[in-house]
């Protein structure tokens, strides 16, 4: 069993060190992507004509292989983890921007009108009404972005062992230690599942107002209410 967790010395990391590094390389880009997506999505909501070109651009960026990004970036950022994280952040935009746009657009027209009529200015309305109501949709996007980012980090192994757990795959071949590949794949999968579960938990805590399945049985809606389209998690 020890064989699975005995790390080759060229990696300069313990197993747990690799896990921590992997998480950092995966999650920092998602966070950066979120910070970039929020204003970008808001622009798309305010100026709907902007949305198609923005969507098109994020899709094209997503289609660029990471190796191509590495070739472009290596002149500036070298064989570093930043080189790995920049493409990952750009990739996350393809899910986050539409998720936030859809979330903000999901605010019911009458809720939007009521907020305006009560004297909310545009910024206050965005922060206090639109964004909170968009939380379930934003989290649906975050879950996809996070899981995909966690799996994509491994490719950093191509630029001088910058792939955290992915580096184990290369070493598995160099040192003929297939168990390292198992460790790499199993740990990455586990991290993805755990991160996803954590995001679901966060969303539940942030949206006590959302009628999800568990709550619906606890507090049934009176029959007189037309079933409002529930904001479902994108699975």
């Amino acid at each position: 069993m020890d064989e699975f967790f005995r790390m080759p010395s060229d990696l300069q990391h313990s197993y747990l060190g690799l896990v921590g590094w992997h998480l950092e390389e995966a999650l920092v880009p998602v966070l950066a992507g979120l910070l970039l997506s929020l204003p970008l999505a808001q622009l798309c909501v305010r100026f709907p004509r902007l949305y198609p070109p923005v969507l098109w651009t994020t899709t094209v960026l997503y289609a660029v292989p990471s190796l191509a990004f590495f070739v472009l970036l290596i002149d500036w950022t070298g064989q570093s983890e930043v080189t790995v994280m920049i493409p990952l952040a750009l990739y996350s935009l393809v899910v986050l921007v539409p998720a936030i746009v859809d979330g903000v657009r999901s605010v019911p027209e009458e809720t939007h009108a009521a907020a305006t009529a009560m004297g909310f200015g545009p910024l206050r309305r965005y922060l206090q009404v639109e964004l909170p109501i968009a939380v379930p949709a934003v989290f649906a996007g975050l879950r996809v972005a996070t899981v995909s980012s966690i799996s994509l980090v491994s490719v950093g192994a191509l630029i001088g062992n910058q792939g955290a757990l992915g580096n184990l795959l290369a070493d598995a071949m160099s040192y003929h230690r297939p168990e390292l590949a198992v460790t790499s794949v199993a740990t990455t999968a586990l991290l993805a599942v755990a991160a996803d579960a954590l995001l679901v938990l966060c969303r539940r805590l942030l949206t006590p107002w959302s009628p999800d399945r568990r709550r619906r049985t606890a507090a049934p809606r009176p029959a007189a209410v037309p079933a409002a389209p529930a904001v479902e998690e994108a699975r």
Partner: peptide, 18 residues
Amino acid sequence: GLRRSMGYVIQHAGLFPH
């Protein structure tokens, strides 16, 4: 200020779900 001095009731109530 004008809007805050006028109550507004809309179809479907338009409550803040959150």
